[in-house]
Design a binder for these strands. Structure first.
Lengths: 129, 129
DNA sequence: TCCATTTGGTAACTAATGGAAACCAGCTAT
DNA sequence: ATAGCTGGTTTCCATTAGTTACCAAATGGA
């Protein structure tokens, strides 16, 4: 089942890996997957939790993730139509990695901001000197 | 030194983490960091290895990564000016995570493509059925 | 000598994307 | 009746990504 193509190489422009990487290396996808890792979530629930995301981007991100087989969509015929998004087994294999990315950002945010301030002031970072 | 801000939360739109995440969750940044992890590399060396990247995007990505303190730039006054890029200690802490992202894409590319084909044909993925 | 090629970029221009807001349908509560 | 919830789509504009051409300085070959 899980065939590992011998030629998969993200550095080759013709390799489809490039397209996949472009999808998953995405701010909104990382945030969405981070929330879905805890269990099924509804559309507007995601919208409220991911501050600043527009309906368009959320809808677009979820649709892409569904197409890629990372997220599954389930419409429930309740009073107002409820749509529930959950992570698929394939998506779960990616979950830990994107969580690490988000956690890295949260953890090292301060250091990055500091470096940016130094760069903007002197044109030199911490290590280059 | 390495203060971990108690309020760092990528889901808050006002948190700078969002900006940091947007930078590191980037196709080109992932590929650049992947190569720099093996040791210092020159500009055109990167350009040749990362097929399909333009000078502009490479230059822009490297500049951002340098500003963020993840990459250091060293210009050597050789015959034609050689510029060597290497990963910083801070960048090294991110390296493993972005490598995992790239490796995930390479490993699961086949499954993602399969899912895309199914979605495009039936509107349904592997798991939703 | 003169043109091609190397180095590492920048500037101009166009194609694609991101984000704000409006709009949609169906139903409910006031 | 009108404002609100559900989950979206559409439209528009600003920003960004990407392509191409060009730059300076030097070297190697014809």
């Amino acid at each position: 089942m899980s065939f590992t193509p011998p030629t998969a190489n993200a550095y080759a422009s013709t390799c489809p890996t490039r397209l996949v990487l472009d999808r998953i290396a995405d701010k909104w996808a990382v945030l969405v997957l981070g929330l879905l890792g805890d269990g099924p979530v509804r559309f507007n629930q995601l919208r409220r939790q991911i501050e600043g995301i527009s309906q368009k981007m959320l809808s677009q991100t979820l649709k892409s993730l569904e197409r890629d087989g990372l997220v599954s969509r389930k419409a429930i015929a309740t009073v107002p139509v409820t749509v529930e998004y959950s992570i698929t087994p394939l998506g779960a294999t990616l979950s830990a990695t994107v969580d690490n990315l988000r956690i890295w950002a949260e953890t090292h945010m301060g250091q990055v901001l500091l470096s940016q301030r130094q760069y903007d002031a002197t044109g030199t970072g911490t290590t280059a000197m």
